[in-house]
Design a protein around this nucleic acid. Structure first.
Length: 594
RNA sequence: CGGGGCGUAGCUCAGCUUGGUAGAGCGCUCGGUUUGGGACCGAGAGGUCGCAGGUUCGAAUCCUGUCGCCCCGACCA
């Protein structure tokens, strides 16, 4: 049966909804695909549900090709499994938690690793049962601090999440690769440009992780790539570490007066005036060591002050810092923190100080484990042994020249906190990188044994030994993909769906009030349906042609058939929504022309 | 959580500065005309002006509080 507009649940809006800003949100609401229920939560209307189903169909076919089997879990789950893996706490405010009438705790699942693991544990106990890949397409819940941009970042969203179970690392590699390949096929079929980047495993835990990012200026992720093929999320980017250099023969550090040097620039200018280099080049900000004081708050609420040393020409990137210190929260130290640590002379912080302030050039460590302050000191990876730096002398209006890493100061370790720039070298030697923005549309993880360990998922191997299963988890944001496709395919008149995901194949418009037109339209609709295509039929009487054409364009079905004044001459028009091209065909010529 | 904006009819908004008991366009209902680009005429239905308190003879309008929504930032697998 054709879907007729006279009895469809659809109402288009003439004006943009006032609460929608981004294009996809605006058009999906205006064209009657979705309706907002609460911030970041949407109802799906018949048209929207159809598009969602088309995307899910592609995902299901490729999951099947990858050997994964579909299951379905509740979204409402007991909290215990999440407590067992620590995520009940680790997830923080991002997880919806609730209680039943007896006070028993539940969660609305943000992802389903725990319950998939427990289900496999329930049923499988032998290596002969593995490998196994199972998935579901289910709504996920995350209490986002600020949902925005309609479907692009909601609190409820549909996700395909797959999980693989292996008993060897090699097996996990194979399962991981199968999902990764499936993702490439899915995004290709959906016509979505993507970049696969090295990612940070984040709260999911585990080791190897890659993200599929759709490059777009409005994306929330920054990633880097080199011409030589390196690609990584900026949070997972690692610095190319220079070779250590010999310390022998390097001059001792010298302390100098440096009044009125509140900025790195003013310090560099002073350095060039006071102690110009002898090798012909000038001092630059990259020769200075900037010591940034961070406050790290662990999940249990304890607060620690950490100093990170980075090249003076760079800023600390708090997102990268969050990754480096996760799951702790990171912020810049406040005045209170400085009061509690008088050993840090604000504005003149350095890892080293002259033994007798204001005088000699023998010194002592100020930062790091065996230092006077005992404050943890982490260094940028570029600060290898033998590099020399200009930095604060821990005295007001005093700096120090020629402080040698590995000799005058030693960090408690290295940390990737400095910001990443266009032109930085890729860590694999594939050349300079450039940065770009992207929106995460898929993520593949090798979880390893974290979840199986925590929940006790073990199987007997060939030797009768109990081994812990190793897992992968693989997510695709179905509703986010839908929004991105809408974002990419539209014009000032409305949506323009790619055929693979369009809610219908053909949109038939009957115009005029001649009964013969409607009879002809009925026959054409029946013909098209008989050819196996889905038809949305605008059979509304008493609606003017302008309204009908406007709705057809807004809704965005790829092919529109106009049955109207041409019927008298035995013709109708085929209208290509994407190109705007219209062609006349005979009444019986519609199906062959499609 | 910080900054900004907004809550008035189903939708998009005006009215608020200067207090006098609520409007427009679209949509909806009925009758008629119209039918290839969001038609027209006529008659209607529809609103505790987010909520609570206060000032006042009188509050959509002024004051206080509160709730909600949107945007930017922080945050976010």
């Amino acid at each position: 049966m054709p879907t007729r507009l006279t009895n469809y649940f659809l109402k288009t809006l003439r004006e943009d909804p006032s609460d929608a800003e981004v294009t996809s949100h605006r058009l999906l609401v205006r064209a009657g695909y979705i309706r907002r229920q609460a911030p970041g939560i949407f109802a799906w209307l018949p048209l929207g549900l159809r598009v969602k189903a088309k995307i899910e169909k592609v995902v299901r076919e490729e999951m099947s090709n990858a050997g994964a089997h579909e299951v379905h879990f509740p979204a409402l789950l007991p909290k215990e499994p999440y407590e067992a893996t620590g995520r009940y706490v680790d997830y923080g405010d991002g997880m919806f938690r609730l209680e039943d009438r007896r006070g028993v705790g539940y969660v609305l699942a943000p992802t389903h690793e725990e319950v998939f693991t427990l289900l496999v544990k329930d049923l499988f106990s032998s290596y002969k049962d593995l490998p196994l890949s199972i998935y579901q397409i289910q709504d996920k819940y995350r209490d986002e601090a600020r949902p925005r941009a309609g479907l692009l970042r909601g609190r409820e969203f549909t996700m395909k999440d797959a999980y693989s179970f292996d008993y060897t690392d090699a097996g996990l590699d194979v399962s991981y690769q199968a999902q990764r390949d499936a993702y490439e096929r899915i995004f290709t079929r959906l016509g979505l440009e993507y970049v696969i980047v090295k990612a940070d495993a984040g709260a999911m835990g585990g080791s190897k992780s890659e993200e599929f990012l759709h490059p777009t200026p409005v994306g929330e992720d920054t990633f880097v790539r080199s011409a030589g093929g390196y690609a990584a999320n900026v949070e997972a980017f690692t610095t190319l570490v220079p070779e250590a250099r010999p310390v022998e023969g390097l001059a001792a550090p010298t302390v100098f007066d440096s009044p009125d040097t509140p900025t790195i620039q003013s310090l560099v200018a002073l350095a060039n005036a006071e102690q110009p280099r002898t090798d012909g080049r000038e001092w630059t900000a990259a020769d200075t060591l900037k010591n940034v004081v961070l406050a790290i708050t662990q999940l249990d609420g304890s607060r620690e002050i950490v100093v990170v040393g980075i090249p003076g020409d760079r800023d600390a990137d708090l997102k990268r810092a969050e990754v480096a210190f996760q799951p702790a929260e990171v912020e810049a130290a406040n005045e209170d923190d400085f009061r509690k640590h008088p050993g840090l002379v604000k504005g003149y912080i350095g890892p080293w100080a002259a033994a007798r302030p204001g005088e000699d050039t023998t010194g002592t460590a100020v930062l790091g484990e065996k230092s006077s302050t005992g404050i943890r000191y982490l260094l940028d990876p570029r600060m290898v042994t033998g590099t020399q730096w200009i930095t604060g002398a821990n005295e007001h209006d005093r700096h120090v020249f020629g402080l040698v890493a590995g000799r005058d100061f030693v960090g408690d370790g290295f940390v990737e906190v400095a910001d990443v720039r266009d032109g930085d070298p890729a860590p694999d030697g594939s050349g300079p990188i450039e940065t770009a923005r992207g929106m995460e549309i898929g993520h593949v993880f090798q979880l390893g044994r974290k979840y199986a360990e925590a929940l006790g998922l073990k199987v007997l191997d060939e030797n009768g030994k109990l081994v812990t299963v190793t897992m992968g988890s693989y997510g695709i944001g179905v509703t986010r993909i839908l929004a991105i496709i809408a974002e990419l395919n539209n014009d000032e008149k409305g949506l323009i769906w790619p055929p693979a995901v369009a809610p219908f194949d053909v949109y038939v418009v009957a115009t005029g009030r001649d009964a013969a037109v409607y009879e002809a339209a009925e026959r054409i609709v029946a013909d098209i349906e008989a050819s196996g295509r889905e038809v949305l039929f605008d059979d509304r009487p008493k609606v003017s042609p302008g309204v009908k054409f406007g709705d057809a364009e807004l809704i965005g079905v790829p092919t529109i058939v106009i049955v109207g004044r041409g019927v008298a001459d035995g013709t109708v028009e085929l209208w290509n929504r994407a190109t705007g091209e219209r062609t006349e065909v005979g009444l019986d010529g519609v199906v062959p022309a499609l």
